[in-house]
Protein backbone atom coordinates (compact mmCIF):
# COMPACT_ATOMS: atom_id res chain seq x y z
CA UNK A 1 0.00 0.00 0.00
CA UNK A 2 3.08 2.18 0.03
CA UNK A 3 2.48 3.30 -3.58
CA UNK A 4 -0.99 4.76 -3.16
CA UNK A 5 -0.11 8.28 -2.03
CA UNK A 6 1.98 9.16 -5.07
CA UNK A 7 -0.46 7.39 -7.39
CA UNK A 8 -3.35 9.47 -6.12
CA UNK A 9 -1.30 12.68 -6.23
CA UNK A 10 -0.56 12.02 -9.91
CA UNK A 11 -4.23 11.27 -10.60
CA UNK A 12 -5.43 14.40 -8.85
CA UNK A 13 -2.93 16.55 -10.75
CA UNK A 14 -3.99 15.08 -14.10
CA UNK A 15 -7.65 15.51 -13.21
CA UNK A 16 -7.13 19.16 -12.32
CA UNK A 17 -5.23 19.74 -15.57
CA UNK A 18 -8.03 18.14 -17.58
CA UNK A 19 -10.67 20.37 -15.98
CA UNK A 20 -8.42 23.40 -16.48
CA UNK A 21 -7.91 22.56 -20.16
CA UNK A 22 -11.67 22.32 -20.71
CA UNK A 23 -12.37 25.27 -18.40
CA UNK A 24 -15.54 23.70 -17.09
CA UNK A 25 -17.11 21.89 -14.15
CA UNK A 26 -19.86 20.17 -16.16
CA UNK A 27 -20.77 16.69 -14.88
CA UNK A 28 -20.03 15.05 -18.23
CA UNK A 29 -16.49 16.41 -18.29
CA UNK A 30 -16.03 15.45 -14.64
CA UNK A 31 -16.90 11.84 -15.42
CA UNK A 32 -14.82 11.73 -18.59
CA UNK A 33 -11.86 13.30 -16.77
CA UNK A 34 -12.13 10.81 -13.92
CA UNK A 35 -12.17 7.83 -16.29
CA UNK A 36 -9.32 9.19 -18.41
CA UNK A 37 -7.02 10.09 -15.54
CA UNK A 38 -7.47 6.77 -13.75
CA UNK A 39 -6.86 4.89 -16.99
CA UNK A 40 -3.75 6.97 -17.74
CA UNK A 41 -2.43 6.55 -14.20
CA UNK A 42 -2.82 2.78 -14.30
CA UNK A 43 -1.50 2.55 -17.86
CA UNK A 44 1.64 4.58 -17.23
CA UNK A 45 2.45 3.08 -13.83
CA UNK A 46 5.04 0.75 -15.32
CA UNK A 47 6.74 3.62 -17.17
CA UNK A 48 7.51 5.51 -13.97
CA UNK A 49 9.94 3.25 -12.18
CA UNK A 50 10.99 5.68 -9.45
CA UNK A 51 8.45 7.11 -7.08
CA UNK A 52 9.09 10.59 -5.80
CA UNK A 53 8.40 11.03 -2.13
CA UNK A 54 8.09 14.76 -1.60
CA UNK A 55 7.39 15.87 1.91
CA UNK A 56 7.66 19.20 3.74
CA UNK A 57 5.07 21.01 1.65
CA UNK A 58 5.84 24.24 3.51
CA UNK A 59 9.48 24.12 2.45
CA UNK A 60 8.36 23.57 -1.14
CA UNK A 61 6.09 26.62 -1.05
CA UNK A 62 8.90 28.73 0.44
CA UNK A 63 11.34 27.47 -2.22
CA UNK A 64 8.79 28.40 -4.92
CA UNK A 65 8.67 32.00 -3.76
CA UNK A 66 12.45 32.18 -3.33
CA UNK A 67 12.86 30.98 -6.93
CA UNK A 68 10.24 33.44 -8.17
CA UNK A 69 12.07 36.31 -6.50
CA UNK A 70 15.42 35.15 -7.87
CA UNK A 71 13.99 34.87 -11.39
CA UNK A 72 12.71 38.43 -11.20
CA UNK A 73 16.03 39.73 -9.87
CA UNK A 74 18.23 37.91 -12.36
CA UNK A 75 15.96 39.02 -15.20
CA UNK A 76 16.95 42.58 -14.39
CA UNK A 77 20.60 41.58 -14.01
CA UNK A 78 20.74 39.78 -17.36
CA UNK A 79 18.91 42.65 -19.08
CA UNK A 80 21.63 44.93 -17.66
CA UNK A 81 24.36 42.69 -19.03
CA UNK A 82 22.80 42.53 -22.50
CA UNK A 83 22.33 46.29 -22.71
CA UNK A 84 25.64 47.04 -20.99
CA UNK A 85 29.14 47.63 -22.38
CA UNK A 86 30.98 44.97 -24.38
CA UNK A 87 33.42 43.94 -21.65
CA UNK A 88 30.60 42.87 -19.35
CA UNK A 89 29.20 40.65 -22.06
CA UNK A 90 32.40 38.65 -22.52
CA UNK A 91 33.12 37.31 -19.04
CA UNK A 92 30.87 34.31 -19.17
CA UNK A 93 32.24 30.88 -18.38
CA UNK A 94 31.81 27.44 -16.90
CA UNK A 95 32.22 26.66 -13.21
CA UNK A 96 31.96 23.60 -11.04
CA UNK A 97 29.92 23.28 -7.88
CA UNK A 98 30.28 20.42 -5.38
CA UNK A 99 26.90 18.95 -4.60
CA UNK A 100 25.42 16.59 -1.99
CA UNK A 101 21.94 16.11 -3.41
CA UNK A 102 21.48 12.56 -4.76
CA UNK A 103 17.73 12.07 -5.27
CA UNK A 104 17.01 12.02 -9.03
CA UNK A 105 13.79 14.04 -8.71
CA UNK A 106 15.61 16.57 -6.56
CA UNK A 107 18.38 16.84 -9.14
CA UNK A 108 15.82 17.27 -11.93
CA UNK A 109 14.13 20.04 -9.98
CA UNK A 110 17.49 21.68 -9.30
CA UNK A 111 18.32 21.52 -13.03
CA UNK A 112 15.00 23.17 -13.88
CA UNK A 113 15.50 25.89 -11.27
CA UNK A 114 19.06 26.67 -12.39
CA UNK A 115 18.15 26.76 -16.06
CA UNK A 116 14.90 28.68 -15.60
CA UNK A 117 16.77 31.40 -13.73
CA UNK A 118 18.28 33.71 -16.34
CA UNK A 119 22.05 33.97 -16.14
CA UNK A 120 22.76 30.36 -15.24
CA UNK A 121 22.33 27.22 -17.34
CA UNK A 122 22.88 23.66 -16.16
CA UNK A 123 25.65 22.08 -18.22
CA UNK A 124 26.19 18.65 -16.75
CA UNK A 125 26.73 16.40 -13.77
CA UNK A 126 29.83 14.30 -13.16
CA UNK A 127 29.18 10.53 -13.36
CA UNK A 128 29.71 10.02 -9.62
CA UNK A 129 27.21 12.80 -8.91
CA UNK A 130 29.62 14.82 -6.80
CA UNK A 131 29.99 17.97 -8.92
CA UNK A 132 27.75 19.79 -11.31
CA UNK A 133 28.86 22.11 -14.08
CA UNK A 134 26.94 25.29 -14.76
CA UNK A 135 27.48 28.04 -17.28
CA UNK A 136 27.22 31.54 -15.85
CA UNK A 137 26.72 34.66 -17.96
CA UNK A 138 28.25 37.11 -15.50
CA UNK A 139 31.09 35.12 -13.93
CA UNK A 140 32.81 37.47 -11.50
CA UNK A 141 32.35 36.01 -8.04
CA UNK A 142 32.37 32.20 -8.16
CA UNK A 143 31.98 31.95 -4.39
CA UNK A 144 28.72 33.86 -4.45
CA UNK A 145 27.24 31.51 -7.06
CA UNK A 146 28.30 28.44 -5.06
CA UNK A 147 26.70 29.91 -1.96
CA UNK A 148 23.48 30.80 -3.79
CA UNK A 149 23.05 27.35 -5.28
CA UNK A 150 24.00 25.45 -2.15
CA UNK A 151 22.04 27.39 0.46
CA UNK A 152 19.12 28.84 -1.45
CA UNK A 153 18.23 25.84 -3.64
CA UNK A 154 20.04 22.68 -2.60
CA UNK A 155 19.26 22.74 1.13
CA UNK A 156 15.47 23.07 0.70
CA UNK A 157 15.49 20.46 -2.06
CA UNK A 158 17.32 17.99 0.20
CA UNK A 159 14.76 18.76 2.87
CA UNK A 160 11.89 18.13 0.46
CA UNK A 161 13.11 15.03 -1.36
CA UNK A 162 15.39 13.15 1.07
Amino acid sequence: MKRWPSLTLFTVTLFALWLLLNDTLAPGQLALGLILTIAITLGTAVMRPLRARPHHLLAAVRLFFVVLLDIARSNIAVAGVILGPAERRTNSGFMKIPIDLRDPYGLATLACIITATPGTVWAGLSPDGAALTIHVLDLQDEEAWVRTIKYRYERPLMEIFE
Binding site: V78, I82, R89, S92, F94, T115, A116, P118, V121, L137
Partner: peptide, 14 residues
Protein backbone atom coordinates in the same frame (compact mmCIF):
# COMPACT_ATOMS: atom_id res chain seq x y z
CA UNK B 1 24.65 41.17 -28.93
CA UNK B 2 26.15 38.31 -26.93
CA UNK B 3 29.45 37.00 -28.27
CA UNK B 4 29.30 33.19 -28.32
CA UNK B 5 26.77 30.36 -28.28
CA UNK B 6 27.05 29.58 -24.58
CA UNK B 7 26.37 33.19 -23.66
CA UNK B 8 23.58 33.46 -26.21
CA UNK B 9 21.64 30.62 -24.55
CA UNK B 10 21.06 33.00 -21.63
CA UNK B 11 19.29 35.58 -23.78
CA UNK B 12 16.01 33.81 -24.59
CA UNK B 13 15.57 32.66 -20.97
CA UNK B 14 14.37 36.23 -20.41
Amino acid sequence: RLPDLFARIHGPTL
